[in-house]
Write a protein that binds this DNA or RNA. Structure first.
Lengths: 342, 342
DNA sequence: TGTTAGCACTCTCGTTTATTGAGTGCTAAT
DNA sequence: ATTAGCACTCAATAAACGAGAGTGCTAACA
């Protein structure tokens, strides 16, 4: 379906007006505000056409028009130009990242906060499960008598740890040796591929250390089990309090509940996902719970699996800004990866 | 001010009614529901007295009465019996703790969730800054060329880490030695008391390792700086969505903002705090932002500093349940400390 | 003297009724 | 093809009103 220039102008005007006012927009407003040099009556005719085509709808006969989801879709597909981040905003983002670069978790939440703050929507970042991370280093550190700490470092500089029991006979040097064994055998492997069997060959020659190795492997299993799912980080959930479409308490609760409940979003974001910015508008979302919301998201490449990030907001969303921001942030994330983690 | 038995009964009835219905309660309801064997008119007289004494108030002339904050205070001080946790609830709590005992952060949020879920209010747990923790162990682990990871274990089994640069000349054994030095000198000290000067004496004999020690100390400084404030963990903030007193969007926003904004609560909870359960009702709170809310909280003893925990909810709160739960949970926390961290 | 029934009075809340005004669709003129 | 003009529609706001819950007061009662 192709629209002539004037219809496109009118559709865009209505969208931009509606997105910021949240009110139906009338023909006069359009005719006046934008110098289209046509009268309100003409606009009315065009609007009637646009409505018939499904791009606009009327809440009731004597109200102005609002863009339909189809209308938004047309705009997003055929007219929108992404507003990527400006230099100051990029600078701010890099500053935020740098301040939190020491701790990958902090980096992520820093980026999430930024995303939420700049767009004024709720942001989400989905971090691939550590089972896809690469094993980089293991160290068994003696603690109080009979206890030691297994420390595992992954490609992102993520530290995982778990306390294990060790026989009293085991000395510091033994622990060091065990660490060396792990490092030799597993370095560079994905965490989930650290198989017990790989150790079988060497384990025999270290009798009394067997128990420690077993316990360490068990600890790793338990760590993987504990963080087997992709991690979801949400920021700015409260931004939706500002959207008039959620003044209804029940709707508000439902949405906030989804955002706050751990991992709920994971099942809602589309599974397969490319690197380009993708947009799901309202009922385009397969998940029932967010059929009144829109998603703007993209994938980002880490070492192994793809991560996901984006914003979630009302259908009446500043798609141009959101899409541009998501795109910029994705670029920055991948840049960060190159710079700091390789 | 002392009340006769009947007045006390009536006050209590009104409180229990009002707390669960959120509506002013009238004389008939009281006379009927509770078998006080007195008529509504009598109740009315008593209620008039109670109002004059300041324990009740009337939203408007033709409405029932609601307890004033003074009324709640009287109830809490002179009549309330705490409803501590039952066995099933305690079992659940211990189960939650056990499942999350591996990671102190998880333990805390587990307990927080429990507290919020059982009371139906928002819960908070304030964990003393790690600078009050005891240094237990340090290890410098070599990473990629020119880099190493400083790992610090504290009394709670908390692991902190930071990457540092190391000269290429430094070998694995050197790192081990440096770790040993730290462990010898600092073991058992409070993190904030780890003074550079303590290392002065020994540093001279390790020429090429000087740089590493400096970097490690710097890393520690930066870690302490980063987590210098007590950590605040909030759970169940969304519970306040259910309270009718916050149906007003603006109030709701204000409260949620406080709960979600990192550390905001820290400045709101009273500073000095004992181990007993304490209650602040509405305007008793010094902080302007929560003059319409009540706090029920207690301190818990860790190794060093006192931690704080409790719930925050509307003035119309089930104080008996909240206070009992907070008390029970405090006991459990201290029990956990004894069992797992000493 | 304390308790209770009775009654007039008050005030909120939900419903109904008018009023207003923004916006439309249609028609006829340009 | 565009536009001015006009009658029409309908939400939103305000005003009017009745119903109901609850009170305070008075007078009768135990």
């Amino acid at each position: 379906m192709t629209l002539n220039e004037r219809k496109r102008k009118i559709l865009e005007s209505i969208i931009r007006d509606y997105v910021c006012s949240a009110e139906p927009v009338g023909s006069r407003a359009i005719a006046k505000r934008y110098d289209l040099k046509i009268s309100a009556a003409t606009v009315r005719n065009e609007m009637a056409d646009l409505e018939e085509m499904g791009y606009l709808e009327q809440p009731h006969t004597s109200a102005g028009r609002i863009p339909s989801e189809t209308g938004f879709r047309y705009y997003v597909d055929c007219m929108m130009e992404k507003e990527v981040l400006g230099d100051e905003e990029l600078d701010l983002l890099y500053k935020v990242v740098k301040e939190n670069i020491q701790e990958w978790n902090d980096t992520v939440s820093g980026i999430g906060n930024f995303l939420a703050q700049v767009t004024n929507y709720a942001s989400f970042i989905i971090v691939p499960s550590i089972k896809f991370s690469e094993f980089k280093h293991l160290q068994v550190v003696p603690m109080e008598a009979g206890k030691a700490m297994v420390l595992i470092v992954t490609d992102l500089g993520l530290i995982m740890h778990r306390k294990i029991d060790i026989p009293n006979a085991v000395k510091q040097e033994d622990l060091q040796i065990i660490g060396d064994v792990f490092n030799r055998v597993f370095r560079g492997k994905k965490m989930e591929d650290m198989r017990r069997s790989d150790l079988q060959t060497i384990r025999d020659d270290l009798r009394k250390r067997k128990k420690v190795i077993d316990n360490a492997l068990e600890a790793i299993d338990s760590l993987l089990q504990n963080s087997g799912e992709d991690r979801v980080v949400i920021s700015g959930a409260l931004n939706i309090l500002n959207e008039p479409e959620f003044k209804d308490m029940e709707k508000l609760k439902a949405i906030l509940r989804i955002l706050e409940t751990d991992g709920q979003l994971r099942d809602i974001i589309p599974d397969k996902i490319g690197e380009e910015v993708d947009i799901k508008i309202g009922k385009e979302n397969p998940a029932e719970e967010i059929k009144e919301m829109s998603l703007v998201f993209a994938g980002y490449k880490t070492f192994g699996e793809m991560g996901k990030m984006g914003v979630i907001g009302p259908v009446r969303m500043e798609y141009w800004k959101a899409a541009g921001t998501v795109e910029s942030v994705r670029t920055v994330i991948e840049d960060i990866f190159k710079k700091y983690f390789s």
